[in-house]
Design a protein around this nucleic acid. Structure first.
Lengths: 114, 114
DNA sequence: TCCGTATATAATCAAATGGTTATTGAACAA
DNA sequence: TTGTTCAATAACCATTTGATTATATACGGA
């Protein structure tokens, strides 16, 4: 099933802000509390909470529970949906080589691990 | 070189609107004039022109010249940049199989062509 | 119970967004 | 030159967005 437009709207809108992309990048390294997420920015905690709400509304993060903390976790499903939408345009930037390259890089990386 | 944040902002913001995504989908089929692009929508021509300005600002389309017409053309480079940004998160939705699948599908398609 | 820490919510505000109508401008055709 | 068509621009408006400060709520510790 194709992801429906509604979610894509929210996803792309969420991704359009550099603060929110930075938050996602941070969460890619592991779950983090609001305070931790706010730390790198010259912005108040409520501002960050608002950004988190936008990300959560887009399904890009989820909220955990640990004492007073509400650690956020990256949820990549909407990113996969966005990617799937982009797939439809792959032909426009010549794809197969790139994908083969990535694949080979990955195989090399796997090789190294063993 | 990584695409810089400025362009990604504009790209994702442009993609967040369903009208604009529909316009891109239409342009994927071939260049089209403003009037042609406006036709499927219950929206005035100036509204569409505004959307086109947003898309052009993000580098997603370019403007041609044919008599009074100003046909728009899809420019996929920013989509490639967006895709590259997403690449950084592939690991979060389990990637290699999908990529292998796509690759295999493509090989089959090539096969069929011959 | 009372205090401190972590987070959320409310009220407010300026700027950006997405639409409208009305008008202008540019290119062709008669 | 005059009219017609296509597109852009201006002026306007309501809503949304992204930030602020101030306040409330929830939890754990002394």
């Amino acid at each position: 099933m194709q992801p429906h437009s509604y979610t894509l709207d929210a996803t792309f809108a969420a991704l359009a802000d550099p603060t929110r992309r930075a938050i996602l990048a941070r969460l890619a390294l592991g779950d983090a509390s609001v305070t931790e997420l706010a730390e790198p920015f010259s912005m108040t905690q409520p501002a960050i909470s608002k950004h988190l709400k936008v990300l959560e509304h887009a399904g890009l993060i989820s909220r955990g529970k640990d004492a007073q903390r509400r650690p956020r976790r990256l949820e990549a499903k909407p990113l996969a949906d966005a990617n799937q939408w982009l797939e439809g345009y792959r032909q426009f930037w010549g794809t197969s080589f790139h994908r083969l390259d990535t694949l080979l890089d990955e195989m090399k990386a796997q090789e190294k691990k063993r």
